[in-house]
Amino acid sequence: MRDRRLLFEFAFRAVSNAVAMVVVGVTLFILGLVFVKGIGGISFAFLTSPPTGTMDGGGIGPMILGTAWLVILMSLMTVPLGAIIAVYLNEIATRNWLYNTVMSSVRTLAAVPSIVFGLFGLAFFVTVIGGGLDWLFGYEERVFQERCLLWAALTMGTLTLPTNVISVSEALKLVPDEQRHAGICLGYTRWEVVKWVVLPQAVGGILTGLVLSVSRGAGEVAPILFVGVAYFLPHFTGDVLDQFMELGYHIYVMATQSPNVDETLPIQYATTLVLLTLTFGFNSIGQVIRWMHRKKMSR
């Protein structure tokens, strides 16, 4: 009897550890695979030059620029807004139905599939806002009501909003209540407590939110599939009302719609490596900042 239980115990332990090792192994394998297959294709020329022909040669310069622009514009929207919502939830709102509504809205926003944000971008930013702006300025042809970088960035900003709210909220929760009370005892208004006492201590959280949402925004493709990304546009114009090329979308296009998939495989792996480095790098930086901030606050 005892032997059977020992055997079970041993088997269970072995299975659990083995599965954990499989998960770890798969992760490392994926990272290693992309690195090994992609590193050969990386060069300065590849990173800066535009693609050539039917995208079977050349580099990924415009895609990197497009991704960078997208991410920057997105951060300009999502980081301040995320901080505002987080501060409202944690510092201003009393725990009533309004608080609950805002809170569950943020949660819902975090759970909505990313493709739906794309639909929202098309139906709201492009059609309603863009169309409205065209009407407002009296343009005959479509200027704003086009799929373009600006609307893609706003769509991506909506998508990454919950990430920011959660990061900043976490940082605000780490600020002890005594600090707020001490501020109040000095005669601060509620906003002054936020401005002079709480926010300076939550900078780490805002930074984490920024970096994590940049990582997320650079990696997501689904929401911008039909809100501004271009199949082939060899020169990045920098105009926010133009379409643009994006790294993730480029990988998708090359892998599924390229005329000679096998020949361009090295380019694809190299592009993947660049994207992975970007998103992964930012994600790791974000985790490190979060960790350091937590350590600093817990001291």
């Binding site: 005594e178 009370h181 001490a182 109040i184 005892c185 005669g187 601060y188 201590q201």
Partner: peptide, 25 residues
């Protein structure tokens, strides 16, 4: 009202807490 209260706390009534609370950073 809340604003007069802020003035009162700032200028006329000082308060020291149980645990020392220096502002971090």
């Amino acid at each position: 009202d809340p604003y007069e209260l802020c003035l009162l706390r700032g200028d006329r009534i000082g308060y020291v807490m149980q645990k020392p609370v220096p502002f971090s950073g």
